[in-house]
Design a protein around this nucleic acid. Structure first.
Lengths: 200, 200
DNA sequence: TCAGAAACAGTCAAGCCTGTTTGTTTTGGC
DNA sequence: GCCAAAACAAACAGGCTTGACTGTTTCTGA
């Protein structure tokens, strides 16, 4: 059969890798780290194990690539949410955006990798630096969204605390849905920030 | 051989179960959820697999018991740290105690179970309620240590936020040692609480 | 003291995961 | 068109985990 549709190999490679990475993230979200086996991933991606091993020679390679893919997803998600930001109740709005970042499936996938990395040296080498980078980027973006001067007063540490807070909220949300409680906590914290942040 | 040392069976049972539970927690801390296999646990506890299966017929049973054991450990740890609390810089001291709770090996073990429970229905049924109870107890204890009236102003939500914060700090600490950063964040948080809490 | 129950020990089979190996198809430069 | 290289497919071996099964020792109550 002469192939009617000729797709460049570069394109196919990219699509195949993307399918595998997305399947990996989905597995992490739905099945957790322990449930994310190479077999399950390949089946879900609709890719033969041979093809999978061709693109990612080891599970380690697959997961590391997935981590990098996750950084992109998280960055996109943050930017996307930021577009809905209005000017009134700005602080509360920013808190909502940040919190949304940490109760999303993407965060849950990252959480699985994060926790697994604690006891897996190879994984930690990949997750650690990337997570630090995401932390820095999120911090900078939060400062930008809040429209504050980071060098003033305790602003810097307050933003850090805010990020640690939403991380804790995300962890809580992973086990049981506590949307309501989260909202009240964020309300209180918004009030606090309005008092304590030194606006320029 | 006439057994010179006669140990009541109840005692032996308790000791054996305790050995298994402590080995389970140790494995969770050192090897993570995926690495905590029944074989590894029994070997580390110095218990034959037969004995292990006698006391805990399934891995599920073992882990559920470990979860309950962990609640005791966490409670003890909290109480023990609370004894070192002095009167000057009380808020900052309380924060240190709470933070210590969430960067301890015991918390890391609980974290493994917490995350695993997200995608494991059976485990979630055990971890969920217990974690909620610990949350409530810790909350109540924090209120007591701070010596505040929970019904006043936003006190209640500020305490909740504080607990979410230290949980986030604990998660951050699990991947890389950030003792210094944590201290500065807690300093800022203490200042905030001093401003915002309504002391009685 | 003795019998039955509980506690303990060790082995085994079934199933799964990972990564290797071997074989087939498609692509792109010559 | 043709051939090397990349992409893809599938079977396989080795190792590990879980829980069941069988046998042995120790305790308790009669």
């Amino acid at each position: 059969m002469t192939t009617e549709t000729r797709i460049p190999q570069g394109e196919r490679t990219r699509a195949m890798r993307l399918r595998l990475l997305e399947a990996t993230v989905e597995c992490l979200v739905e099945l957790g780290w322990a449930g994310t086996t190479t077999t399950v991933v390949s089946r879900r991606a609709g890719v033969s194990r041979g093809a999978q091993l061709h693109h990612f020679p080891s599970k380690q390679a697959l997961v590391v690539a997935a981590v990098e893919h996750l950084t992109d997803l998280r960055r996109d998600e943050l930017r996307r949410h930021a577009e809905d930001l209005t000017d009134d109740g700005r602080i509360r709005g920013v808190l909502d955006i940040l919190a949304a970042q940490f109760v999303s499936p993407v965060f849950f996938a990252a959480l699985e990798l994060w926790v697994a990395a604690r006891t897996d040296a190879g994984l930690r080498e990949s997750v650690g630096p990337l997570e630090r980078r995401i932390g820095r980027e999120t911090h900078a973006y939060a400062v930008e969204l809040l429209g504050i001067d980071e060098s003033k007063g305790d602003n810097r540490h307050l933003v850090q605390a805010t990020l640690d807070l939403v991380r804790g909220l995300g962890l809580a949300a992973s086990l049981s849905d506590d949307t309501k409680r989260r909202a009240t906590v964020l309300d209180s914290w918004a009030t606090v920030l309005e008092h304590e942040l030194e606006m320029s």
